[in-house]
Design a protein around this nucleic acid. Sequence first.
DNA 1: CAAACCGGTTTGTATTGCAAACTAGTTTGC
DNA 2: GCAAACTAGTTTGCAATACAAACCGGTTTG
Lengths: 114, 114
Amino acid sequence: MKDSTRSAIDGVLNVDRLVHEPARLAILTVLSQAEFAEFGFLEMACRLSKGNLSSHLSKLEAGGLVTIEKRFEGKRPQTRAAITESGRAALANYREHLKALISEVPTGAEGDQQ
Amino acid sequence: MKDSTRSAIDGVLNVDRLVHEPARLAILTVLSQAEFAEFGFLEMACRLSKGNLSSHLSKLEAGGLVTIEKRFEGKRPQTRAAITESGRAALANYREHLKALISEVPTGAEGDQQ
DNA sequence: CAAACCGGTTTGTATTGCAAACTAGTTTGC
DNA sequence: GCAAACTAGTTTGCAATACAAACCGGTTTG
């Protein structure tokens, strides 16, 4: 087994589960592209129900990857989420692991066993 | 939101959960590099306990992504796993989604909201 | 022949992702 | 002016599942 394959697999095995979950990865990805985003926007952008979005945001907040700001837009409540520095780092780190997997391990079929 | 970002996120949201789990992704990745692998080898290569490896292999088998062959090596039982065509396709597809995410969405910090 | 080892499978548990139900307030229709 | 519908979320309940620990059948070793 090649060294690069070895470390790519180790990377995969150690991914941050908080980031790895597709819904949260989507949220972080969207947030990484903007200064902040409103709840309603995230709902559509990530195709999540309000319930799921709410709970995933709570987990991301608990993990320090995003901040949640609650405010009023006129008379209506409004929630804004933003990625933190720590969140950016976690996302970047996650993406590095994926990149390693993709670039270091060939798609190829044949190879030598063990 | 850019179109490429949109489809990258859709890709992430629709990943095959059977492949997405790190332990199973590791297994499939290892199997994709060889014709087959023995249980004991997978155990080390994927840094999995026997119990976990056993149950993940069962799930992959149930999903048709790998085949399990049981035989005797001398007097001892031995299990071999191999990736199927369907498994190869699922892995390739999964990797395509990742690649799309990484290549289409910039790491960048700033951007315009919504 | 007992103890340790090999090669796994089964079982138990704690986590968690998701949907559905709920809460709290606001606007609209009549 | 008040009931019904809508907005903006949170909480709750449940089914799935990842992992560890216990277990099991057999084999080798001391």
